[in-house]
Design a protein around this nucleic acid. Structure first.
Lengths: 214, 214
DNA sequence: GTCTATACCGAGATAGAC
DNA sequence: GTCTATCTCGGTATAGAC
């Protein structure tokens, strides 16, 4: 009732640095984009979730499109930290490669359990040709795929792994492996969700690895 | 220049029956909902794609929400035609069951290749709890899952099939099996899309069946 | 850099002539 | 039943005070 002028909608008594609010916006954007898709997500809701004002999105990221890209960049950055590139390739005999590749797959599954938003966002873009999809493939997916292809091809050449192409391993990992966590609400409603936390993620990684490395 | 009054934006010189336009709207809605999600799809675009006026959606389906449900109902109806329930279960020994189950999986994959919109729409709802998701599970997914569960359990009891739970078979089929076609634009951009048409669908069914029935 | 106010557009839904 | 006009709301983006 009192204080008619100084009341603001978002609550950030702590004025926060420019970087802090940018990060908060990116985190909120990941959740909203993952839940509602690019078109369905609204910058109002993203700002609200971040405890910021909607115009601050345009100030920090100039446009919704740029915000989306930076959100994806940030998530891929987090993934790179969790599943470092050293483990994806490197020299060594077939057994070394197999062990390293399996370990990386497991780490990727764990990352997907911790950050289901990334696979979610990728899958949302995957079905419709768009500039966003082109950018996503060129910037992030293709380099990653070629890395995987190199390792898997070498690995298969030395007789390890299941009789699957790189494309099959890729699809199994991203669709069956990672989407499991993004689809948790539906699986829970069906009564087939995994245990939450590390244990559940590990079990799902076991299931994937049983197919890729029988 | 001439005819100032009789020009209409949507082109349907043929006035079409009520049922024809309802079907056209449902087909258009499937494409738009699949491409942009529920929130992202617009009734204006759906009507435009169907060659109708936007208010006709409210006339025929009362609301966007109802239109969405009828769109899903129609797609599940088409699926039931393509993969009839007789083939999903029925009495018989283990070999009969295996053959019938494999045939049904194959038909489902073919249906998913012909109508990627259904798996797409399901996947869009799968990640966020909502009344739509609850309705989807209760109305369509749970009955289907329990059918699959009954058959797969019987089949496994007789020693057939890979050492997988029903949940694993379900996820492999819907994620790895069906999403392959929904994600075709991304896979094509990565250079790993399958051949179009029946042949490509059959090849992908082979890949899935090689995992489920080694 | 932050925040209020607002411009401008497109969304879903409704009214009423036809 | 169809179609035009329109209501109201929420979307992104911008202007300008502070």
């Amino acid at each position: 009732m009192a204080r008619p002028s100084t009341s603001r909608s978002p609550r950030h008594r702590t004025p926060r640095t420019s970087e802090a609010i940018a990060t908060a916006l990116l985190e909120a954007a990941a959740v909203e984009f993952a839940a509602h898709g690019y078109d369905g997500a609204s910058t109002r809701r993203i700002a609200e979730r971040a405890g910021a004002h909607q115009p601050q999105i345009n100030y920090h990221f100039t446009s919704k499109e740029h915000l989306w890209r930076e959100t994806v960049n940030r998530l891929f950055g987090l993934m790179a930290i969790d599943t470092p590139a050293d483990d994806r390739g490197g020299p060594g005999d077939g057994d070394d490669l197999s062990v390293a590749f399996a370990a990386t797959l497991r780490r990727f599954i764990h990352f997907s359990a911790d950050h289901p938003e990334l696979n979610r966002i990728i899958n949302l873009e995957a079905t419709t040709p768009s500039p966003r999809l082109d950018w996503l493939v060129a910037t992030h997916l293709r380099p990653l795929y070629e890395l995987v292809d190199g390792v898997w091809t070498a690995l298969r050449a030395s007789g390890r792994g299941a009789d699957l192409t790189t494309a099959e391993v890729w699809e199994l990992t991203t669709s069956y492996g990672a989407l499991h966590f993004a689809n948790e609400p539906m699986l829970a409603a069906l009564g087939i969700s995994t245990r939450p936390g590390r244990a559940g993620a590990d079990e799902h990684a076991d299931r994937l690895l049983a197919i890729v490395f029988p």
